[in-house]
Amino acid sequence: MSYTRPTFRHPEAHKNQLGYTRTAYEGSISTLCAGCGHDSIVNSIITAFFEMSIEPHRIVKLSGIGCSSKTPAYFLNRSHGFNSVHGRMPSVATGANMANRELIYLGVSGDGDTASIGMGQFTHVVRRNLDMVYIVMNNGCYGLTKGQDSATADKGSKSRKGAPVALESIDLCELALGLGAGFVARGFSGDKKQLVPMLKAAIAHKGLAFVDVVSPCVTFNNAPTSTKSYSWVREHMEITNTFDFIPLRQEITTDYPHGSSIPVTLHDGSMISLYKREDKEIITNRQEAINALEQARSASQVLTGILFLNPDSSDFHDINNTITTPLNRLGEKELCPGNDILQAFNDSLR
């Protein structure tokens, strides 16, 4: 049941630089539970692409299996999508990106899809630094199969079923940092103000940008005793930095009230302007990012913000030295060495 939205919009609706209204970035109506954190993330994704004035058809959205992985149907109807198999989105994204390096790849996954069945693929797509945005909609449980704990559920946290989680949780951001990811961020589905610029920065980043978004499951994991619930996250959220995303060639016009902004330039010339709570946190320092995560963990806090950024990372195609023309555009002339070479090969065997 894929419902479509009414296409009518106010004639004076705001348009972006391409002349598109927000409608051009929307998808079908969500079939997730009312109040699901994932729907808020979907909205932030739509806003980010709309405000960045990226042509929708240049975006490729990919996902695995689970509630999170259903969401690509709910945004960017003008983009091609690939709802693949459980835990295997990273490999499909890899192949797709290898075939055409010009498009923007957005992978959407969940905590079950990434931290359990897809752990191998997640770690290796980070390692090969595929140029993509990798979003985990992290609710600490398996929604579609009715609420089992996932590997990111915090030890001691209690879901609706009431039993505390007995095992240690996997912190995907910390793992991504350990794997050498060039962009690691954590957001909260309930904080759009932070999430939208965070997604924009992730989109502008070259190489793999990992964004873990805590996204409460209203049906199975929103009890106040759950560390992935709205109330718990709101009470325990610690913001490491607030920031604006400044697109390429746009003048910095915003006034920064605290006067402590630190600019970080991304590969394409766009910029993130960070407001630090404390100046000692440098987001380009991996060691400090890991320390900050560990400190927040011992203090039972959820650290959000851009945790680490390496603006100079080399992506898969840099490393592979792939031709700039997308491979899927090459034809016989560029690809087939021809019969003469084959005859020379035959001769070399004689």
Binding site: G95, A96, A99, N100, N328
Partner: peptide, 11 residues
Amino acid sequence: GIAIGGGWNGA
């Protein structure tokens, strides 16, 4: 998965 992703995207 890589081969399928590539085939899907026209390579």
